[in-house]
Amino acid sequence: MATAGSQTSGEYISHHLQNLHVGEGFWSLHLDTLIVSGLLGLIAFGGMMLLARKASSGIPTGAQNCVEMIVSVVNDQVKDTFHAKSDLVTPLAITIFVWVFLMNAMDLIPVDFLPLAASSAGVEYLKVVPTTDPNLTFGMSIAVFFIMIAMNLKFKGVRGLLKEALTVPFGKYLFPVNLLFRIIEDLAKPISLALRLFGNMYAGEMVFILLAVWMGASYWWVPAGAVLSLGWALFHILIITLQAFVFMMLTVVYMSMAAENH
């Protein structure tokens, strides 16, 4: 739709994949990712906080009902998977599910709405879906990784963790192999978490962008493109929920693996 004027399709696509950033090299920040994810989080968790403060044991209404439903679904999953006692795991799971879901849901806003609004306000680049930025997914998954290590240390202690890393799965005589396996296994966890979410959302966003380019090529394509975009958006509701759920569920599984002896 926005291919008017001097922009070619290639330029349009790369424009959409460009973050709004400041700074150079490693010490640069993607302002769009940070601001959109931060705003969503502040609205969601601030709202939940206000709601939780007023939460009563009486008949829940409206928003409280909705939040309680989400929270208790997450809590049930945690209870099924994570059997040790921890005050952290359920809030962690709730945070991941709600936040990732909301960030993914930005994908359902038509691709050009917010960037056009931003460019008319003088902001040149805007990537609206924070989960299509690997910085975000890795930021979360690496945080999960450190929480996992802390959980290991809390439940097994340094000795227990070392013993497990050195003797599982092949016994103490093959400790170098055991250790190598363990390191690979644990490093794979944050990487797979981050890349799965990033890949799914990036690909989904890309389909929307390509459909928009196609519709921009000729007015003849607009009806078909609109139908396909709607279809993909409906299907995407499933994907964004599923990806948020998968990220949450795997985190809980990793936590339970950290808390229990194999």
Partner: peptide, 13 residues
Amino acid sequence: NINATLLGQALWF
């Protein structure tokens, strides 16, 4: 394009 955004996101998280 990994950069300091990662740290910012971890802080938000």
